[in-house]
Amino acid sequence: MTAPSPSTTPLPVGPLLAGPVWAAVDIGGTKIAGALVDSTGTLAHRVQLPTPAKESGAEVLAVVHQVLEHLAAAPDWAAVTAVGIGSAGPVDLVGGTVSPVNIPGWREFPLTAEVAAHPAVAGRPVALAGDGVAMAAAEHWRGAARGAENALCLVVSTGVGAGLVLNGAVHPGPSGNAGHLGHITVDLDGERCPCGSYGCLENIASGTAIARRALAEGWEPRGGDRSARAVAEDALAGHPVALAAFDRAAQALAAGIAATATLVDLRRVVVGGGVAAAGPVLFEPLARHLDRYAALPYVRGLDVRRAELGNDAGLIGAAALCR
């Protein structure tokens, strides 16, 4: 398989980045992105390629290498002091490995070592985190969780990831998977998940799951677009099946959020990722279901906010790991 050519923004002319500069890589089941990020959270020299998720581990790594090579060609590369990676998980910080549920070619894949061995990295330290933890780091540094002592930050996209902020700091846990909300059970009679468990939140609330449910219930996509975005467009237009698919996803998210808030006593919840772009068709039923599930006095009225950093969150978060 020949890796695709990068889709980039034009390289800036002259100095742009200030202070320490970090290379950031964001790896998901749909795309692998990279950028250079400075101490203010400014991004430059972006690159994004599709993830060959169904291909071999070596072919996925080849795309990561392409991203690194694009960044290394930038004039600011000499100022880079470290490389941060946010990856779909689970991850293993002790071993530096990743086993993304949506990238079957990577199982206990030594991602940290492979990136560190790339000639462009040249001895720079490499920091790894799950994508949910990276998103939490980003939103706590520059986004909707800024100033929160305790927060849950969710990425609802191809999968469902999350990260925790506890006592004013991002809390990855010893393995790096603390807050891995997408793989808690919310449906006791649910289907088996690719992770090996049953009834996982991700199997109900991810964009993939929303589209799958809508199709199973008779939704007919216009123009052949079978994505969650297309379901969201029809839901905004009042399509009952599309609305029901989002309502079910919101119910599952509410159950997971309420359980987490009850367990660790937090107030702030930040929701990002591609599915969050659906806006009211997700957030209105989410608020309604949270009223049912977040019942104890100390978790009632959770402060739910839409993520502020959009598609930049993964990259800003990967850089935040290096700070």
Rank of each mutant, 00 (worst) to 15 (best):
T2E: 12
S7A: 14
S7F: 04
S7V: 15
T9Y: 04
L11I: 05
A18Q: 14
P20V: 06
P20H: 11
P20D: 14
V21E: 01
V25Q: 00
D26V: 10
D26T: 09
A33W: 04
D38S: 06
L43W: 05
H45D: 13
R46W: 02
R46C: 11
Q48G: 03
T51G: 01
P52K: 03
K54G: 14
S56M: 04
E59M: 07
L61D: 11
A62G: 06
V63W: 00
V64N: 06
H65S: 04
E69M: 05
H70E: 06
L71R: 07
A72L: 06
G89L: 14
V91D: 00
D92Y: 08
V94G: 12
V98R: 02
V98A: 07
S99V: 04
S99H: 06
V101E: 03
V101F: 02
W106I: 09
L111G: 01
T112N: 00
E114M: 09
V115K: 06
A116D: 00
A116H: 05
A117G: 08
H118P: 00
A120P: 03
A122F: 03
R124Y: 12
P125M: 02
G130C: 09
D131E: 08
H140V: 00
G143M: 00
A144L: 01
A145Y: 00
E149L: 08
L152T: 04
S157P: 04
V165A: 02
V170E: 03
V170S: 00
P172Q: 03
S175M: 11
S175N: 08
A178C: 06
A178W: 05
G179V: 05
H180Q: 11
D187T: 06
G190V: 02
S197A: 15
C200I: 14
A205E: 05
S206V: 11
G207W: 12
I210R: 03
R212T: 15
R213Q: 10
A216N: 05
A216G: 05
E220M: 14
R222Q: 15
G224A: 12
S227D: 09
A228I: 13
A228P: 08
E233T: 15
D234C: 09
G238R: 11
G238A: 12
H239G: 10
P240F: 09
P240Q: 05
A242K: 06
Q251I: 05
Q251H: 13
A252R: 08
A254Y: 08
A254V: 13
A259R: 14
R267H: 15
G272N: 14
V275W: 08
A276S: 15
G279V: 09
P280T: 15
A287Y: 12
R288M: 14
H289D: 08
L290M: 12
R292F: 15
P297A: 10
Y298V: 12
V299S: 07
G301C: 06
D303K: 01
R305A: 11
A319V: 05
A319Q: 03
A320S: 10
L321K: 13
